[in-house]
Design a protein around this nucleic acid. Sequence first.
DNA 1: CTTACTGCAAACCATTTGCACGATC
DNA 2: GATCGTGCAAATGGTTTGCAGTAAG
Lengths: 140, 140
Amino acid sequence: MKDATQNFTAKCRQAGLRVTPQRTAVYKALAATTAHPTAEAVFKKVRRSMPHISLDTVNRTLLTFRDVGLAITVEGSGGARRFDADMTAHQHFRCIKCNRIIDFHHKPFDEIKIPRSLSEKFKVLKKTVYLEGICRACQG
Amino acid sequence: MKDATQNFTAKCRQAGLRVTPQRTAVYKALAATTAHPTAEAVFKKVRRSMPHISLDTVNRTLLTFRDVGLAITVEGSGGARRFDADMTAHQHFRCIKCNRIIDFHHKPFDEIKIPRSLSEKFKVLKKTVYLEGICRACQG
DNA sequence: CTTACTGCAAACCATTTGCACGATC
DNA sequence: GATCGTGCAAATGGTTTGCAGTAAG
């Protein structure tokens, strides 16, 4: 994790982002956990050492981190819940521009094998391949 | 789609659900689209033929459908946005009970191949295997 | 006729936006 | 000093809950 913290300043500069105490604190808090926190959770943590920081700043900072490649958001999380009556085997592709979700079906993806090390620990009820990118309509 | 509609009554009975006009209308609206609509979108559609239906009913109905296996929710959609500073290759397992997200890494999952038919149509920027189930702590 | 479902209202939670002040480069 | 970032406040959007009336079995 040493790398990560050093990497932070470099990535900021590289992306033309200013290195502010808030950003540093948010990054440290996020990098220190594997709990995949929400903005709210990061906010609570950071506030302990920086009582004046606002939730908005944390939120914006985290989104900025994602945009410049310092963090990711867990697949699909964030928007409204979306439903699908199709109960046959299929996978989803989500366009990051228009937010459309497109079904596709690729048999090999139905048959991916869960490693033993996982099925021993967890009861896996659902396994899916999830793709994100840019759909045809949103390209050039 | 004929099957689906017939299946509907059967599945309801089987799950001990009453077959109400609202449920029927919501199911029809959902089954008629591949757009992966939000509750709001389904609501707007259903309201055209059933002006008195409420958004809450649509919401609850859709969640019920998911619980009895008449619909699915798109992976991860619904909750708050969750962040992760880990930029190395890895996958996520989400516990449907405690909502925890657990990292794991299985090399073969990094190397899944996108079929040509997809990469021709879409610019795929991210591909991940996403698992859901019950984590150890939440099991019996 | 009993129990489950619906609709309404309110509360709650997460996210976004505009703007003025302050800090970084 | 110019520009970018922050904090505040308010608005928005989505989801959940409790409750009383209504309809399905």
